[in-house]
């Protein structure tokens, strides 16, 4: 997608007409083409209330138009809180949170991983959990008669290897976002 700016309005000259089919083939993205842009999703979206950068209607619009790179490289597809309010209300059964998952899956395969998710993935790889359990915490646990929590978790690394997450995280294109 080639894009130049004209008085703050993006001017789009090239679209990828196959992108909408690609998303529709991805699990979760099947119904995306039914969207007729009514805006019910955005009207009830709690994330959109906090940050207008996340606008589910517009994201779906960009997919249908074929703005592939802008959608996959943007951080907005990662902002969905999966509360499923839009999913409940969408009159065309587009299943927006699942569309977002589909988009995230495609984005990750293309090497677009949001830094926040990369950091989380790395934390889990290192500690088996999202936060590091230090010696102080284990001491406290011992005082209270609880077992110590292991500091590393080799099984997670093994899962990362089997599922391919390890390759994705260390892949050349990784961390574009």
């Amino acid at each position: 997608m080639e894009s130049v700016r004209r008085k703050d309005v993006p001017v789009v000259t090239v679209l990828d007409p196959k992108f909408k089919y690609e998303v529709a083939r991805e699990p979760g993205g099947e119904n995306i083409k039914y969207c007729f842009q009514c805006g019910t999703c955005t009207s009830g979206c709690k994330v959109a209330e906090l940050d207008s950068k996340y606008n589910p209607r517009k994201i779906i619009r960009m997919v249908i138009l074929g703005m592939r790179e802008r959608v996959l490289s943007g951080d907005f597809i990662w902002l969905c809180a999966t509360c499923y309010t839009c999913h409940e209300r969408c009159p065309q059964d587009v299943r927006i949170p699942e569309v977002m998952n589909a988009l995230k899956n495609i984005a990750v395969r293309e090497g677009y991983i949001h830094p926040a998710f990369r950091a989380q993935a790395e934390l889990i790889a290192g500690h088996g959990r999202l936060y590091e359990v230090d010696g102080f915490a284990n001491e406290k646990r011992t005082d209270w008669g609880l077992t110590e929590i292991p500091q590393g978790c080799p099984e997670v690394a093994e899962i990362y290897g089997i599922t391919g997450l390890h390759d994705l995280l260390s892949g050349g294109a990784g961390g574009k976002v």
């Binding site: 993006p10 001017v11 789009v12 000259t13 679209l15 209607r57 517009k58 619009r61 960009m62």
Partner: peptide
């Protein structure tokens, strides 16, 4: 003008 995305489409 694509009113739904706010973009100018030059196709």
């Amino acid at each position: 003008e694509d009113l739904d995305s706010g973009c100018i489409l030059d196709l």
